[in-house]
Design a protein around this nucleic acid. Structure first.
Lengths: 334, 334
DNA sequence: GAGAATTTTGCAACCGGTTGCAAATGGTGG
DNA sequence: CCACCATTTGCAACCGGTTGCAAAATTCTC
């Protein structure tokens, strides 16, 4: 049998209310009783039942963590940071792995059934209104890696994908590449669309640049490889901005298979700067995304919402920068 | 305000008990009331509160999922499968990211506070008695990727690490490698110890084989690279069995840095067969670990325990096999 | 030391469900 | 039509906590 409030109350010789209060910060209890209670609790090995307490207070300290990115290595880092960050705030992540067969409605239901205090949607490939479903259900929600909007309906934390696209284009052009291409992730993903937009806007400023673009069906190695293989039939561009790191690695694999050397024959720049990008055999030049701050901000934001701090929702974007490694030539060939 | 039992009862014109029963499989209700109730529930958008119900039934359908492997890419696959598998059984994973500063006791506490029905410890580097702490706290627990024991105190699901070590040694020897080495993960990990044991037992059967071994401080790229770099000062062995795939990749990176070609100069075989091992630029010969069955079995086992099926705990091991790729020569040089 | 002000305490109702039990209902056979 | 049995239903207590409120205890003031 579990040790409950009642047992502690009995042993300490006080009412259950006293025990409850002894465990509540700032409640009205004398030091004497608080001590008695804690002593008794200690002896019995008592631990408050978070669920029972959640029932009355309306706070479970459970945060729904939703994603559909369980195949991209970057997500391991995302996930590590989210779980750690939540733990530090004494919140518990209830994870939802969004597969094909789970609809918007049923994910809302799953989390509502468990009375989560708030929800973090962590994905750059979900439609923006997916996260909206939670707000509509009355749940505080933050969309991490979501799309920027001037007046968002819910809080968004992420990066400026348009700026990243522009940065990529600027970089390629500055290094003397003339025929450049964007090899994006899934066409439907807002991150893909925005990166492409920025890339095009920036590249088109230069009239002598030849631009092309295409899409892989997912942010995944094999998708990148296949798509690069496909477009290589018409000969490669001089340099590619790939939708993300794992796509880049797949693309490079296809380039190697076709006998091209990177960066000597073809340049590649990715986006994310996942741990693996640093590995010797990969050594990917890429645009760094500040994962730590993004995730910290997401957690901060969701706890603020839970605490009832009502401010209009904002899009919080972090800036990215290029990390120089070995898949892009460093400067214009002379 | 949330819709509760009471609201539904009112609308349907029945008692709350009736509503509760209408939502319980096999409860004593007439079809007529069940219909009325479901209709009313539908209209109000009612969903039972899993936590409240857990309070009385003692079942929350929450499963604690604990790991300390948030830096090994294989864990993304593990994690994907666990969350999916649990979801399919209508169980919810409550994730605990075991960092340095979280002790055995406090992890038990965290999960007990949330009244999880059971716990899955997913790690090959935790001491066997870590999982025991949960059993001692009265929680059903399964140790996935744990160490085999003839008469285990708790359920263990995993692979036969000793056999894997032997398989690796046998393979290397069969291919004519004479000076072979084990580059293991952390010395304290049971998986490391067992793989080494199997490796040594098998290799020592052949008197003409030169065996050596050493350990990386973690199952991680950089750890593998550093350790290989360190041991290379004395010249390489002819082939290495590395503690796992990510370690192998690190080791290969160091070998390349030192000017050795794989597999022409040095052979490498890993263990796990993570997705990435298949990537073109990595193409790692490795021992395949059947993740799917292991995880399925872990989930089955923990739900059986939760359902009170009491059988003595067992060690359930799955066999592994070699996957031929490009980091080990295929046969004896003639 | 009395009275007022303040703090501490316990009672009891409540959060949203479940369930044992007894009463109500319905069906069956004579 | 009644007795009998099976099924369905609602009452009320309970799960493990929290909290408003009034009473009790303590502290302060003069």
């Amino acid at each position: 049998m579990r040790v409950t409030l009642k047992h502690v109350a009995e042993l300490a010789g006080v009412s259950t209310s006293a025990v409850s209060r002894a465990f509540t910060e700032g409640a009205s209890v004398s030091d004497a009783t608080r001590q008695k209670v804690h002593l008794a609790a200690e002896r019995l090995g008592y631990q408050p039942n978070a669920l029972a307490s959640g029932l009355t207070t309306g706070r479970t300290k459970l945060i729904g963590l939703i994603s559909n990115n369980f195949h991209n290595p970057i997500f391991l880092e995302v996930f590590d940071r989210f779980t750690r960050g939540l733990q530090e705030k004494r919140l518990r992540p209830l994870v939802l792995n969004l597969t094909e067969d789970i609809g918007r409605q049923s994910s809302v239901q799953m989390l509502r059934q468990y009375s989560v205090d708030g929800v973090i949607v962590a994905s750059s490939t979900l439609a923006p209104d997916f996260a909206l479903a939670f707000r509509d259900a009355g749940l505080p929600v933050v969309h991490a890696f979501g799309r920027w909007r001037a007046e968002p309906e819910i809080d968004v934390v992420g990066i400026d994908n348009v700026a990243c696209g522009a940065l990529a284009a600027r970089t390629l052009i500055a290094r003397g590449y003339r025929r450049i291409a964007f090899l994006g992730g899934p066409r439907e993903a807002t991150s893909t669309q925005d990166r492409l937009l920025g890339f095009l806007l920036e590249a088109e400023k230069n009239s002598d640049i030849e631009i092309s673009h295409s899409f892989a069906h997912a942010y995944a190695f094999e998708a990148g490889r296949q798509e690069m293989k496909r477009i290589l039939t018409g000969g490669p561009a001089e340099a590619y901005f790939c939708g993300d790191d794992v796509l880049s690695i797949g693309a490079i694999s296809a380039l190697h298979d076709a006998g091209y050397r990177v960066p000597e024959d073809v340049g590649v720049v990715g986006l994310n700067d996942m741990e693996m990008a640093r590995w010797g055999s990969i050594d990917l030049t890429t645009i760094h995304q500040p994962l730590g701050p993004i995730i910290e901000a997401s957690i901060d934001r969701v706890s603020a919402l839970v605490d009832g701090v009502v401010r209009p929702p904002v899009s919080q974007l972090f800036t990215c920068h290029l990390v120089e490694r070995g898949t892009l030539r460093r400067s214009k060939p002379s």
